[in-house]
C-alpha cells in the first residue's frame, strides 16, 4: 500500500513539476496576489492623519497621537501596522485553501478520462488512491507556501525582530495541518461528484466564504457579529492567526497561549477531517 501510494503521489507531483507553464503560473499568481492586493489595499494606511493637521499640534501631542494610532492599528491587525505583512500571512493560508481545492478537482478529471477506472482495476488498496491525492495536494501546498513566503520577503514583509528558524518551522507546521484538513475535506466532496461543471460550482461556493469569513484579508473585529461567529469556526482564521503570530514574533512578546489554542484547534481539525474525509472519499470509489 505504501509503495502504491508513493507511485501515485509521484505521478501527481510529476504532472505539475514537469509543466513549465504551470510552474510559471504558480510563481506569477502569488506575485499578483501580494503585489496587487497587498500593496493596493493598504488598509492600515486608511487610518492616518494628514501632515498639515498633525503639524498644527504641539510635538508632544503629535507623538501621543502617533502612538495612539499605531497601537489602535496594531491591536486591530494582530500586532502589525503594516497591512502588507498582515495580508501576506493571510495569503499563505488562502494559497493552501486554493491548492487543496484544485487538487481535489483533479479526481473528477481522472474519473472523466477513465484513469480512475484503470486504478480500480489494478490490485491496489482503494485507500492508496485517496492518500496519494491528499499527499500530493499537501506537497504542492507546502511548495506554494515556501514560494510565497520568499516572494513576500522580497516584497517587504516585515518579520518581528525575534523571528527565527523555530518560528518558521512553526508556521510551516500550522499550514501543513491546514492543508491536510482542507485537502481531505475537498477530496471527500469531489470524490462524490461526477461532472466537472458541478465540482467547479461547489468549489466556488465553498471557496469564497472560507476565504472572506476569516481573518486572512481583514481583521475579524471589523465584521458584524454573525460573520464573526462564522469566522471563529473557520480553520483559516486559526491558521492565519498562528502564522501571523510566528511571523511577527518580537522581543516585545509572543502570545504563546493563543498560538497553543490555534494549534489545538488545527490539530483537531486536521485529524478529524483527514480521517473522516478519507473514509468518505473512499465511498466514492465503491462499486456500482
Amino acid at each position: 500500500m505504501i509503495e502504491e501510494t508513493i507511485a501515485l503521489t509521484k505521478r501527481e507531483v510529476k504532472k505539475w513539476v514537469k509543466n513549465p507553464f504551470l510552474l510559471f503560473m504558480m510563481l506569477l499568481q502569488p506575485i499578483i496576489w501580494l503585489g496587487l492586493f497587498g500593496k493596493a489595499l493598504n488598509l492600515t494606511g486608511l487610518i492616518s492623519v494628514s501632515p498639515e493637521l498633525i503639524n498644527q499640534l504641539p510635538p508632544e501631542v503629535q507623538d501621543q497621537i502617533g502612538m495612539f494610532l499605531n497601537q489602535m492599528i496594531s491591536e486591530t491587525f494582530g500586532g502589525t501596522t503594516d497591512y502588507f505583512t498582515y495580508m501576506a500571512a493571510g495569503i499563505l493560508s488562502i494559497t493552501v485553501l486554493f491548492t487543496a481545492m484544485f487538487s481535489g478537482m483533479s479526481v473528477v478529471w481522472d474519473r472523466r478520462f477513465g484513469f480512475l477506472n484503470k486504478l480500480l482495476v489494478a490490485p491496489i488498496s482503494r485507500g492508496s488512491i485517496v492518500l496519494a491525492k491528499v499527499g500530493s495536494s499537501v506537497i504542492r501546498g507546502m511548495f506554494q507556501v515556501l514560494l510565497i513566503f520568499s516572494i513576500a520577503f522580497a516584497f517587504g514583509l516585515k518579520v518581528g525582530n525575534a523571528f527565527g528558524i523555530l518560528d518558521f518551522l512553526g508556521m510551516v507546521t500550522v499550514l501543513f495541518l491546514l492543508s491536510l484538513g482542507l485537502s481531505s475535506m475537498f477530496l471527500a466532496i469531489t470524490m462524490q461528484i461526477k461532472s466537472h461543471e458541478t465540482v467547479i460550482a461547489v468549489a466556488n461556493l465553498l471557496n469564497l466564504p472560507l476565504m472572506f469569513a476569516s481573518n486572512a484579508l481583514f481583521p475579524i473585529k471589523q465584521m458584524p457579529q454573525w460573520l464573526q461567529t462564522i469566522a471563529n469556526f473557520n480553520p483559516i482564521s486559526y491558521a492565519g492567526d498562528a502564522v501571523r503570530a510566528f511571523i511577527l514574533h518580537s522581543n516585545a512578546g509572543f502570545d504563546a497561549a493563543k498560538v497553543t489554542a490555534d494549534f489545538q484547534f488545527l490539530i483537531v481539525f486536521a485529524l478529524i477531517f483527514s480521517l473522516v474525509g478519507i473514509l468518505i472519499a473512499r465511498t466514492g470509489l465503491r462499486k456500482g
Binding site: 507511485a7 501515485l8 505521478r11 514537469k18 509543466n19 477513465g114 484503470k118 486504478l119
Partner: peptide, 19 residues
C-alpha cells in the same frame, strides 16, 4: 485512452508496473 498525457511513455509504463 487513459494513459497520462503529462508523463512519458516510459513513466506511464513504470507507474502501471508499480500498480
Amino acid at each position: 485512452i487513459t494513459v497520462d498525457d503529462d508523463l512519458t511513455g516510459m513513466e506511464n509504463m513504470m507507474l502501471q508496473a508499480k500498480l
